[in-house]
Structure formats: C-alpha cells, structure tokens
Design a binder for these strands. Structure first.
Lengths: 249, 249
DNA sequence: AGAATAGTGTCTGTAAGACATTATGAC
DNA sequence: GTCATAATGTCTTACAGACACTATTCT
C-alpha cells in the first residue's frame, strides 16, 4: 500500500491491499443444543483436516466471503449442512479471539448458539467432517476432548444457556411441534439441573402467553395431558422475575 | 497451499498460507459510555484516514497481532490510548460482520462496551483520529453522522445498556470513587429514561451488598448525605427482579 | 419558621414457593 | 377400588411500588 495520502476514498480503495497487514483468521462456530433422552446434548463433529485432524470439535467453519452476506448466514449455512434444520433458534453468543487459540496464528471466532428439537434431525457429517454426533453435556462438558478452545467455549455457552433459562422462554425451541407442560417443565429442569414446583411453572408459562392449546390430548397411560404448541408470537418472552429455586450463587 | 494431505500437523502448519483464501478484516470497536451533566454520553472520534475520512466514528481499530494477546487487549489498548483509563468496566457486547459494512470488503468487528466515570478523564485524539469528544446519546443516537454501521451499533448497544440497568448494578461503574445514593439513583434514571421511587431504590441497592459507607458526608447546601464507595466485591450484582417502573414493552 | 434534600415506616401489589387437594385416565 | 399423572386451590414469602412521615441542613 502506498504511503502518501489519497485524494478520495475511491482512490484509496483502489490501492487498498487487504493482505498488506497481518490480520487474524475469522470463523464462526455454533454450539447446537438439543435435549433428548432426558439429557442436554450438543452436536460435535470429527475434523477431517489439519489442524486438530481427527479431533472432535464444535460445528463451525470459515466465512464464505463470496456467498455469506453476514455472520448469521455462515452460522445458518453450517447448521443446515449438518442437521438439515433451516429455522432454528439461533442467537449470537460471544466472540473469542486470541493469538494462541489456533496453531495457525491469531484467530477470532464468533460463536452462535442454536436450540433445536431432537425430533426429525438427520445428521450428516458433510464437508470437513468424517463423523458427527450428539454428545451429552454434563456440567458444561462433553466426555470427548475438543479441539482448540472449544471445551472452554462450550462451558461458557452452557453457562449462558443455564442463566437465560431462569428468566426467558428459550426452552420452547427445544420442544417438538406439540408438547405438554410437563414435558416443557422437564426440559427446563434438565437445563437448570434443579426441580421446580409444577404449579408455579404452569402459572408462569401460561401467563407469558407464548403457547396455545392444540385441543388434542396426549395419552400416555395415565390421565391425558393437554398438548400445547407455540403461538404465533416468535419473540422470546422475558419474565420480570427469575426462577429462584435454581439460583446460582 | 498444497492440495495433497499432510502427514503431520507440523507439516501442515509449515505449508500453511494465511492469505490463500479471501478472508474478512477484523477490528474491535468500543462504545464508551459515561454520564455527565445529567446525560448519557458516548465517546466518538474523527477519523484521520480513509475510508470514511473526516467522519465521526466509535473508538476502535485493528487488532495488533504482534502485541495483543486477545480481543480484550485490543479494546483495553484503544481505551487507554484515548482516555487514559486503565481499569474500566469492559464487557463484550456483540460482533457485527457483513459484506457491506465496510467499503474495503467483508469485515467483522467485535464490539465492547465500557462504562467509565466522567471525572478525571483526559481525552486524547491520538493515532488515527484528528479529534475526539463526548457526544450526548438520545434515544440511542448521537447528533453526528457516524461512519460505517456505527450508528446501528450504538443503537443496539444503548438498548443493551438500558435493559441491563433494570436487573444489574452496572451503573456503579459510572460513578466516581465516592458518591451518594441519590447520585447513583440519578444515573440509573438517566439511563432508563424514567424516574423511580427513592425508597425502593435504596432498599434494592443496600440489600445487594455492593457498597460500603465511607463515613464521610457530602454537604451540598441542605441536609448532608452519606457518601458510599464500591466495596471489595467487583462482581456485577444480578437482582432477581427487574425494576418494573421503566419496563420496556 | 420555611425550603430543600436525606432518609425511614409501612401498606399494597405481584408473582414465586410450598403443598394440599381434586380430576381423569389405566388396571 | 389403587396407582399414577394432570391440573387446581390457596396460603406464605420476597421484594417492588406508593406515599406519608421524620431528620438535618440551609437561609
């Protein structure tokens, strides 16, 4: 790049060389959560290529500067490629950037977190992965060793999920199309790691006006339960008070 | 970069060419808030160079891959360079990345937000800026036209600040060393844009156990008020209930 | 005394917690 | 009938809101 000043921005841009300065790598990673079999799980893939070849990692990849318009597109693209899910709950979590987190040098990753129902998901290893699977998250950790700083990212992201569950309606995005209040409460409890009173739970959820009755009942042996679905309102509900029974210190 | 597979990660890294693929620019921007003269203000600087030369922008810059160890270091470095403040409240807000936000091409910026007391800050335009100043934030906007997508970033960041004030003790970081409860309440009210009952406010803050009495009184004409300071506990306090008088719809 | 600001007392309101009770199905 | 789960009734508790009251300084 020339040192002398440019008359106009146009001149400047013409002479601009993106590679003139050392700059970090940028990627997008997504922590994809689901609840199935009574446990919180996250999607991990086995890396096909170097670095960290053969290790498990979060689902992520580089931005495709020619096809992705914005960061969210990269996250959506990866998610659809691996799970086939097109309209998940997807929220930006945090970015992690440092000199040491990737052996290739300074790198930044913007992490999203996704909540998807476990039903009807067809995993596909696809590009860059030789394997892909759900792994149980216990205390913010999976049993597999994760590449780069992904264990750290997963831990912080799980912490965020746990705290948001105390004051939002987020877990509805982990439910199938139709579900009972007991099932929804169960998902809340799995994430919080604590039980809560079911009367309080029903009051809280029903007052939030985020669900509607389907009219159908789920019969599972004993007394049938009302099946609910999310109503039109796609906004996350923020409760004005936290669930206190599971309060973190 | 060679196409054939590498035997070891070491071989791979040796042959790795960071510029082989097109990749985005990465920067760090910081929305620096303060409250003075009864209004919320943010720090903006006049850009010395292209692009957007001569326009006002948030305080930011590129990562120095040789000296910054992590993203936070870049934010801290810029903040200290412009304000001289070394230990501000600094929290990562969000990252914005898109093809179109910067005329140089795909770019990602990780935005931090800082809260600093207005006292004892010596602004210095420094590197990359011909001018720097505080500008009042009204309804998430400053009167100056901001470069790139910085007006959008400021708006979202202000929204985040407003919402966090309803359930956290964040505003204590906008206060000088010693302050009265009435002064702290005033700062809360300025950010929320709504008044609140002073009895409720006192109860809430004092129960949070984040302040300690200095023993000194502030006399300002009428009845003197107790001066408080932050106690040792540097953790942000999260209240279990929101301030409801200023609830956003 | 009166004005102004600091600080307390106390009642109400709202939503969560606790837990007993009733309802509806299978057997 | 019993068992199990669904759903409601209702009392208590915690903390915010409202607002009247007292306290301490000034002029």
């Amino acid at each position: 790049m020339k040192k002398e000043p440019y008359k106009t921005e146009k001149d400047f841009l013409k002479a601009y060389d993106a590679n003139a300065f050392d700059r970090p790598n940028v990627s997008v990673d997504t922590v994809i959560f689901t609840v199935s079999g009574g446990v919180l799980k996250t999607l991990i893939m086995k890396r096909e290529n170097h670095p960290a070849q053969g290790q498990w990692s979060l689902v992520g990849g580089f931005i495709d500067v020619h096809n992705d318009q914005e960061l969210l597109d990269t996250a959506k693209r990866k998610l659809k490629e691996k799970t086939g899910v097109k309209t998940p709950y997807l929220e930006q979590f945090c970015s992690f950037g440092s000199k040491s987190r990737d052996p290739r040098g300074w790198s930044v990753t913007t992490v999203y977190f996704a909540l998807i129902p476990s039903e009807g998901v067809e995993l596909e290893a696809g590009q860059g992965a030789t394997d892909i699977k759900w792994s149980a998250v216990t205390d913010g950790k999976v049993k597999e060793k994760l590449a780069f700083d992904h264990a750290h990212i997963l831990e912080e992201c799980t912490e965020r999920l746990k705290s948001k569950v105390l004051y939002t309606s987020l877990p509805v995005h982990l439910m199938p199309e139709e579900f009972t209040l007991a099932e929804l409460q169960n998902v809340y409890e799995i994430i919080m790691g604590a039980a809560m009173d079911h009367k309080s739970f029903r009051r809280r959820i029903l007052r939030a006006d985020i669900l509607e009755e389907t009219g159908k009942m789920k019969d599972t042996g004993r007394r049938p339960a009302m099946l609910y679905r999310r109503n039109g309102n796609e906004n996350t509900h923020f409760f004005v008070r936290n669930i206190e029974s599971a309060q973190m210190k």
